[in-house]
Structures are given as C-alpha cells and as structure tokens.
Write a protein that binds this DNA or RNA. Structure first.
Lengths: 144, 144
DNA sequence: AATATCTGTAACTATACTTGTTACAGTTAT
DNA sequence: ATAACTGTAACAAGTATAGTTACAGATATT
C-alpha cells in the first residue's frame, strides 16, 4: 500500500466522468468502480479541481463533472495535478564537497533527471483523456 | 527518507570506482563521499554485483572494482540493477469488473506504462558511465 | 423550515518502503 | 595470529500512502 497510484486513480475517475457527460457523478459511485473509499476519491478530486480539470458541487444531488472536454485534457495535465516524485531521487544527504566526484555529481544527476522528465512529459502530453476513452472502448469491443 | 535514491548513489559510487581504475576501493571511503553509512554502500554493491557491474574482494586490502570499462556500462544497466518502481503505479485493488471502465482501465494504463518505460529506458541507454565522468570533469573545469 | 443527501476536510490508524545503525561471521593480506 | 575488509542479518527511525471515521457546511426536495 506504499507506492503512489494517484495518477492511475485519476485517469480511471476522469474516464468515468467523461462517460457520464454533464451528469454529476458522486464519490460513492466512483469509489465502487475504483474499489476504494469515497474519501480517497474526494481527496483526489481536490487536486484535480485545483488543476481546473473538474468541477464539483456540494449538497444533495451534488457530485463532480469534467471542467473541459476529454480531448482538451492531456494526461500530462493529470500527471502534474497529482504527481509528487521523480523517476529517481537524489540522495538526501549532501555529498562530500572535498571530493571531486561528490562536489559535482548532483549537478550531473540533476541534468539527467531533467532530461528524463522531459521525455516522460512529452509522452504524457501526446495523449488526451479522449485517447484513453477510445482505448477503453476498443478493449470493450475486443472482449465482447 | 522515503524516496528511493539507490540509482543516484549507484551512479555516484560507480563514478568513484571508474576514477580509481583498477585499484580496489573500500566501502568506508565511498560512504564518506556519498555521506552515508558503509553498510548502505555494501548493500548497494550487492545489487551491482548481481548485475555484473562490479567485482568485490573480501578480507584485508579488499574492496570493489568496476567489472567493465566505464564506456561499457550504460545508465540503463545501472537503473535496472537497482530500480524497483515505475513512473506511476497501478492501484493495488482490482477495479469493479462489472463496470465497463473498471474492467478495461488496467489494460489501458498498463499500455501507457509500457510506453513511458520505453522512452525512459531509451534515454538511460543513451548514456554510459563514461559520459557521466566526462560531465563531472567538465563541472570541475568550470568551477576552477 | 425541516430533512436528506452530498462534498470538503481533519484526524487517526495501518502498512510498507527506505535508510541508518550495530553486530558479527567469514575471508584475506601481512 | 592478527588486523582489515566484505557480506549480511536484525532492528530502529522516519516518511509516504491509503483506508477509515467523523463531522461541518452546502444544497435540493418536501
């Protein structure tokens, strides 16, 4: 229960919202599909709302809708809305600055990290929520 | 102290070994440069040894050397030797199989994960330990 | 107006992962 | 023999994630 699956849940939930068009969807309903607790969904919705990806309404007959059309939501936006960590982390302790390698390794690793982030972001930016829905539909067709 | 920095430490340590050519390097010495405990280094060496990247010798005057030349060690090999997690994780619980989205989302996300892994791997494969050392040396020159 | 139904959010627990640390068995050079 | 290493087990500490309960606040319905 330790690794971050927020992005996976986010894509799942957003696909559900896209399927419901403009009808508000309740966190209970989404939680059942994801197989988790409604509060987990509502917490996630908070991040998605801050990123302007969804709109929620409180009260009876409340729920959540997409804030944009599926083809206007890239997976990069979703990722940035919920992601926390990088592909690899720097060591938290400062290396020995008296060592030629220790003094410079963080700069080199930082550059590598930036390059990797870039290709990941490019890949994520190349897909929208619409693409996800279409892939899901293809799977549905294949299965039936 | 929670995110995995094994890859960063591995690159740091391997760069140190490359700099010492065929001289055996002790875990105490490496630990000082990385600013951590020698056991952390020895544990990491275990993974690197399994991946045939280093050779160690026990006993007095023991220590570790590179098993190959720096230009023959790609960062992808290093990453695969130590990495554990993916860029994003699947939700651990199985989604509701009675829901059209729930039934298919894992397949779609798995495909995305594979694509992302591929571009990350390509990027990592494009660099060797030699490139890292050269970048470090460049930094040294810049600083002095 | 009263009620039922939602979201938003705080607080707490459980679990798992990573690192740091101590300790010691086994190996090797001197 | 002794000293100096690695390999590795065992445990503590810190932190991140998710699950859960509880409740305040908002809103539609009656």
């Amino acid at each position: 229960m330790a690794s971050n699956s927020q992005f996976s849940i986010a894509v799942h939930v957003l696909a559900m919202l896209a399927r419901s068009c403009d009808e508000r969807v309740k966190s209970d309903y989404l939680a059942k599909s994801v197989n988790t607790n409604p509060v987990v969904i509502r917490r996630l919705m908070c991040s998605l709302h801050e990123a302007n990806l969804v709109v929620s309404q409180t009260g009876a007959c409340g729920g959540t809708c997409l804030a944009k059309k599926p083809e206007e939501i890239s997976l990069l936006e979703v990722f940035n809305a919920v992601s926390t960590s990088e592909v690899f982390s720097m060591h938290p302790n400062t290396p020995d600055q008296d060592c030629p390698i220790g003094r410079n390794i963080q700069r080199v690793l930082g550059g590598l990290q930036s390059e990797i982030d870039l290709v990941v972001q490019e890949k994520l930016a190349s897909y929208t929520l619409r693409d996800v829905i279409e892939s899901v539909e293809e799977s549905v067709v294949r299965v039936s």
